[in-house]
Write a protein that binds this DNA or RNA. Structure first.
Lengths: 220, 220, 220, 220
DNA sequence: AATGAATGAGCTTTCATTCAT
DNA sequence: GATGAATGAAAGCTCATTCAT
């Protein structure tokens, strides 16, 4: 049990110092990626972690490995938060919380925004994280639609895209500002007495989400 | 007349060949920036223009100079389009056209999207362009609000930000997809029978627009 | 004519300064490769040439380009020398000169030895040089055999291999020492009154030459 | 006995597991050096031995220490083989066996070839091995010369160098190919009815053997 | 004593900017 | 004024050796 990662692969546990460095690196990467996005160099992360570059490469031989290891954790947190929103007895409030919190999280972390936008293109475990995310968002959508508060012609993907749009209100944008547009978008999503304007096209695909810009560095 | 740039500063007129090169460079930059965004190197622009890099540097010593010269023109086109939308006898249709066309234009031109998002941060003349843009958008907003179709608590800045959000649905996003979110956002903007949800905060400032990400190249 | 390289491809002549640097680089490469072999880094060559690394990369984008450009010249010199040996009215003396001079040249230039040993594996123009070399050595062999001084069961390839063997008597070996073994090998090659010992196998192929060690750096 | 290494220096006996590791490392080094030459990294040897790199460094602090320990053994085998050849009642056959077998052995073991070529330059105990080798080769030479089949002007050093030359016909060369050049060189070494060509210089020194290339790793 | 993690120098390659021609 | 060659800093990655566990 203790020698099993969250991915389920049995591995020998790292030596204590190695584990400490691994944690230092992940911590540094979190900060650096949050501040600069995924283009940040290993050099900078190593410096921030107080270890040599070689150590980063030893622990994460492929650049993607670090991204995966880091955002696997982060996405787990996102999933938990979304599930919590989906469980809200007031589905509309849950929807709002989802958008607000999601926008907040991505605004505070450029790396997270890039990873979510790229939908784990090339990141197996991140993509797996997205797969865990999806049912939660679907539940959110279903509940709100069943409660008659969310228009019927939007899907789980629309919600993801709406979130991505709001999240572009970058790092510098104040929390208030994001709230303003969350509200505005929510109003667009709400069921209207006079009925919503029909949305073209019928069904955006999961891949459409990946079109949202801010593409992560191309991993060779 | 010939010894005056469009910005109004008196300069010695360029030699004829220099003038020709300037035009070649601007043309090339338009294409390159549209395709790759403002991070594209001068090298590439020079190649596309069929001149040496040195020539580009001589004509536009600072990277910003080229951006300014180029997008001053482009923004003029945007202004014209917005004024046309503002003149539409059907203000709601004008609003829709503004968003649709704006999103389209930015999707087709990554550089334009970056410039508009950055709101001319550091680009004096681009900022001036935005100042010409503002009254047109204000007119658009005023007309639609007077006609009772646009909620009263949104401003021209909100409209700019809404456009920026939609425009983030990058180059790869299909026109249909953009339309979908234009529609959705428009529904959020529309006056509702049951009244809109109040928007926080009261008044986003002009500078808030600059928070929209897609940041220009980081200058060391 | 003046704008044509020795390979026959028409190119625009380099600017004077570029040409000067190209020459500096080739000169430096000659020395560095001679002393250290083809594994030497571009950094070192640049330093020896007194130019920046970037310049070396500009002029020779692929590592192989520099090797080719350099040894194309060198091999031309080798070819000339071998042709001269083949033209000697005394074929046996020609043979001796070939071995002596060839061994000398390779002992003085580790790079040349590597290039000749690798037989231009991956170096188009070097291989072409070898192709020009071959007929000259064949003539040498033929003349000596027709004169009845060289045993009939050796071929052009055998001569190449014999040369390679002697050339391994490295850089430090004195000229006298090499002469000693040239003489010894020549005695093995000479027609003997009591007849030579038959040589297995019948026909070494051209590729066998490439088996001689000292393999050049693997070019990616 | 157990507290004395084969070199005769008194040392505290190794712990049993240390002794086992030492053996594992030597076995692995034999294989790795044979395949890749002496440039192989300690890392690779450690992996092949199934121990950590640190262990290799502890056991053999200097790279040379491992080479010495390993080839001291190997050279003993060579010495035995040469003595056997020297004992052959047919001295010419003994000579042929020596060259053939020596070339074969070096072709099969790049490390051995490098060590013999470097003649123990900087390897005290390997040099000592060569000292044991020398009388055997001298006997070989003496017998063959006394039998009138080997020319009188060659020495045991010449034989070593001849062997080194042939051995350069690297790992890839077929056994047949090596035989071809063994034969050719033997013909050069044989007494000729019409008398041999005199060899310059009179006496190659022992050190001349070290000039044969295939230099060991360059120590920075 | 054994381990393999950590180190950091070194080499490669690219590219924005300057400058000789 | 135009050119594109030259520059050198920077980023990526590897690997021989040391050292904490």
């Amino acid at each position: 049990m203790s020698s099993v990662t969250s991915a389920g692969t049995a591995v020998r546990p790292l030596r204590k110092d190695a584990e400490r460095n691994r944690a230092l690196i992940l911590g540094a990467a979190r900060e650096v990626y949050a501040a600069q996005g995924l283009d940040a160099g290993f050099d900078e992360i190593a410096r921030a972690a107080g270890v040599g570059v070689g150590t980063v490469y030893r622990r994460f031989p492929e650049r993607g490995d670090l991204v995966e290891a880091l955002f696997e954790q982060e996405i787990d947190a996102v999933v938990a938060r979304v599930e919590q929103a989906a469980a809200d007895p007031d589905p509309w409030r849950g929807l709002g919380d989802f958008l607000r919190w999601g926008a907040e999280a991505q605004a505070a972390d450029r790396g997270l925004a890039q990873v979510l936008a790229a939908a784990g293109r090339g990141h197996e475990r991140v993509a797996a994280g997205r797969d865990r995310l999806r049912p939660a968002v679907e539940a959110l959508v279903r509940h709100a639609q069943q409660a008659g508060v969310l228009r019927d012609d939007v899907t789980e993907v629309d919600l993801g895209i709406a979130l991505a749009m709001i999240s572009q209100l970058g790092d510098a944008g104040s929390s208030d500002l994001r709230d303003r547009y969350v509200t505005l978008v929510l109003d667009g999503l709400a069921v209207r007495r006079d009925g919503p304007t029909p949305l073209p096209p019928a069904q955006p695909s999961e891949d459409d989400l990946a079109c949202v810009v801010a593409p992560a560095r191309r991993h060779r």
